[in-house]
Design a protein around this nucleic acid. Sequence first.
DNA 1: TCCTTGCCATGATCCACGTCAAGAAAGAGC
DNA 2: GCTCTTTCTTGACGTGGATCATGGCAAGGA
Lengths: 250, 250
Amino acid sequence: MAQLDNVTPLFKDLAKIEHDQNVACHDCSLYRLCLPLGLHNSDLVKLDTIIKRSNNYKRNQPLFSADKQFLSLFVVRSGSFKTTITANDGREQVTGFYFPGEFIGLDAIHQNVYQSNAEALETSSVCELPYEQMQEFGKEMPQLQIQMLTRLSKELSNDKGLMLLLGKKTADEKLASFLLSLSKRFQVRGFSATNFHLSMSRGDIANHLGLAVETVSRLFSRFQDDQLINIAGKSISLRDMEKLEVLCGE
Amino acid sequence: MAQLDNVTPLFKDLAKIEHDQNVACHDCSLYRLCLPLGLHNSDLVKLDTIIKRSNNYKRNQPLFSADKQFLSLFVVRSGSFKTTITANDGREQVTGFYFPGEFIGLDAIHQNVYQSNAEALETSSVCELPYEQMQEFGKEMPQLQIQMLTRLSKELSNDKGLMLLLGKKTADEKLASFLLSLSKRFQVRGFSATNFHLSMSRGDIANHLGLAVETVSRLFSRFQDDQLINIAGKSISLRDMEKLEVLCGE
DNA sequence: TCCTTGCCATGATCCACGTCAAGAAAGAGC
DNA sequence: GCTCTTTCTTGACGTGGATCATGGCAAGGA
């Protein structure tokens, strides 16, 4: 595989942000991306008392699996996760990738079992939010409820976009959309929008986009030939954002 | 096209349930499917004061469109709707079909503009829930907030299932899954699980499932030849639920 | 009754992407 | 360091479902 040239390998590993288990919400570097945004300081302190800050999860380690009892929501603190759902014949669909500040498990709220599987893509950590206690707190903190609704709605909106992607887009468009989506999410987290690390495998990407691994691999090569990106293993650099934007058809 | 035989055309038109504009929540036939479930009677009366009960929408009439200001959520009272999102080159994805008691517009909560387009598939009516007032009420009615979270989570979960369908299933499996999903939804509404009316066009079905109209048409014919269904125009009868269940791979 | 329009069915053809196969890299374990 | 395994790349080939094209049928209008 060609090595990157002309590219400062600036990508940082999202796993390295924050593994410290004892950072309270108001001192957390994710504060402005995360749930507590808009809460009063006193509410924040209360919220802190129910949040469990987990040990690290290793690559491939499950956070939860479908049909296990639903007790908590999770917010990624560092690293990244994927979620999948499984048909009963074993086929899997990767339903999403999750980065620091993002919620996992929202699709389980209406049941008492998780609806999907979640596992770490690299060494990662989460904040665990026991749902029953959250509900109790919600009664006194309308702002918390509103935040929750907002989060859910945002994920819903995003999933509708994925339906458009899966149902109507060509392979090129799918991959371009995926790369730009990652780019934007890294950017709001203070990372480079053009140089980053793909913590998921080609297989995960392909699965998520409804393509074969081979197709993804070929597309990466072609995008590189066409000077749209530089890619070397898991590190990628987006060289022509404009053309990518056009390609993705949104 | 072959006419239905051996099939009592029992299907009723969902449009006919309830067009009366002045039924309060506690008298509404949809009560046990709808939002107010679990609210105290006094809260229910309050809720009634903000709900606007609309006139009828005609077939193809828009309920709202993307980029219009988001002010209200809607609950289908009678009839049915579809929602779509549009890529900037005009391609559309039908993101969902909605029947009485179901919410439309949940994906807009995190923005102040609607994220999708919604239009009536037949003569239909809705209850309109002004979102700001809902939020105010939510502060005093935790049960209302919980209902909202539950609704959102349920739709999210459903959409993840659609991602599996769009990304991994074959044309046969897609159509079988679709028919069974409709069947279940009609059943909980007190209609026949096996004989019903398709208020959406072949085009809408095809679009929603990520197929071409021709494919859907051919599949209907083949399912009929294989004795899985009887279909005549828009009325369908599911003849072999078990085989359909197997086909859909869940 | 005829014409128009929209929706649906079905056959013929084509192509984007999947599948199969074979190496090459890159990690993981020791 | 070396082996073993997994992941990734690339080529050759096959196919499911899209596209194109044609015709039927039902509803509505004049």
